[in-house]
């Protein structure tokens, strides 16, 4: 447990909390970007360089931009008139707190069998590429198909219906 871990973890949790609690939707999008960046730094802290940079590219580069675009395309979602939380917010908060309590209890009370001071795995990008086109080639193709289908589906869903004037 290094000092960097505590700083990055605090940043991530603060970003997530701000994304959930802030009133302005644009501020929430910025806060969730901070949380994504913190998670990418946690990946880098775990010596998973490829996953960390993929996280930065996909989440900060694409998903955050998508969220901002969606906020701008739905204009009146920026300024809520009567509260930002739903009527039965207490039940949701209770469920989330209960799940965190169960997960935290399970983590803290489980017996550690994994080697907790394992050597840094020497994984290069070349090895990841070899694995992607070797052992994991079928999942890679399925993900390619899924991304194509999702792209076409998103365009069709968000397309204006024919014959409708705005």
């Amino acid at each position: 447990m290094t000092f960097a871990f505590y700083v990055i973890a605090a940043l991530t949790v603060a970003g997530g909390l701000a994304a959930v609690l802030l009133r302005n939707t644009v501020h929430c999008a910025l806060a969730v970007t901070i949380a994504f960046a913190g998670l990418a730094m946690l990946f880098l802290d775990l010596d998973a360089q490829f996953a960390g940079f993929a996280q930065i590219l996909v989440y900060i580069g694409a998903v955050a931009i998508l969220i901002v675009f969606a906020i701008l395309l739905t204009r009146n979602s920026e300024t809520p008139r009567d509260g930002v939380f739903s009527r039965n917010w207490f039940a949701g908060l209770f469920v989330a707190a209960a799940i965190f309590a169960v997960l935290g209890w399970a983590v803290l009370h489980s017996i550690a069998v994994l080697p907790n001071h394992a050597a840094v795995p020497a994984v290069t990008v070349a090895q990841i590429g070899q694995a992607l086109v070797g052992r994991y080639v079928l999942p890679l193709e399925i993900v390619a198909l899924l991304l194509t289908a999702a792209m076409i589906g998103a365009v069709i869903i968000a397309l204006d219906e024919k014959g409708r004037t705005k």
């Binding site: 991530t12 949790v13 997530g16 909390l17 994304a19 959930v20 939707t25 929430c28 999008a29 949380a35 998670l39 969220i67 969606a70 906020i71 739905t74 979602s77 809520p80 509260g83 930002v84 939380f85 739903s86 917010w89 039940a91 949701g92 908060l93 469920v95 989330a96 707190a97 799940i99 965190f100 997960l103 935290g104 983590v107």
Partner: peptide, 19 residues
């Protein structure tokens, strides 16, 4: 676990679909 609980709380309590 903390990030998961925060995300779940956000998904269950916010009114805005984007949030």
């Amino acid at each position: 676990a903390l990030v998961f609980a925060i995300g779940l709380a956000g998904a269950l309590t916010r009114r805005n679909a984007i949030l």
